[in-house]
């Protein structure tokens, strides 16, 4: 199965599993029909959404499998190994290729960005807006800066992060009357 078809199949399976879980959970929803059930109750729409979703997932899965079978008939199946055009010799993929492949799908910068975001929100209320924002801005800006240029940018990024965090805090709390957590500085 080629990459595109694998992706489609993955989408179909994901939605099928999600829909089954969703329908199962919708049965736990309490219903209230004091004047008799003349229409739908609070379980009905989730059940409808779940069943429709299952039907569509099944269509996606079946159509992808049929499409793949059709494509296979007309072409030679791709192999895991890297082969030369004449199929004379096959060599194993180089060491670390799987990790490289994974990083192509989910780049390291993206994973680290998510991690920074997670810690930023985790400490947002605990250490306060100013400190958490300074740490986040410094970390994320460094991550996005090209490796060779980080030294050159270091001072600017640190000063900018401190300045902008303090400025945003005062503008929003003083002039826009929003509440932002003070944390340990309060």
């Amino acid at each position: 199965m080629n990459k595109a078809n694998k992706k489609e199949l993955g989408v179909g399976i994901f939605f099928a599993v999600l829909s089954i879980f969703y329908i199962a959970e919708s049965r736990n929803v309490s219903t209230f029909t004091p004047f008799g059930n003349r229409g739908l109750d609070s379980q009905s729409i989730p059940a409808m959404i779940g069943w429709l979703s299952i039907a569509l997932s099944a269509i996606l899965i079946v159509s992808t499998i049929l499409k793949d079978r059709k494509e296979r008939k007309g072409s030679v199946e791709q192999q895991e190994q890297i082969c030369d055009p004449d199929q004379v010799a096959c060599i194993d993929p180089p060491a670390g290729a799987k990790l490289q492949g994974l990083l192509q799908v989910v780049p390291l910068k993206l994973l680290l960005s998510l991690l920074f975001l997670f810690f930023y929100f985790l400490f947002y209320q605990r250490i306060g807006f100013i400190l958490s924002s300074i740490f986040y801005l410094v970390a994320q800006s460094f991550l996005l800066t090209e490796k060779g240029k980080r030294k050159k940018w270091a001072l600017f990024i640190i000063l900018f992060s401190i300045g902008v965090s303090v400025l945003i805090y005062f503008i929003f709390t003083r002039y826009f009357t929003l509440f932002l957590p003070r944390g340990i500085l309060g």
């Binding site: 930023y120 947002y124 807006f129 986040y136 801005l137 800006s141 902008v164 929003f172 932002l180």
Partner: peptide, 13 residues
Amino acid sequence: NILLPLIVVLCAI
């Protein structure tokens, strides 16, 4: 590298 983190901070607010 400067602009993107700033957008996140403001969206979080």
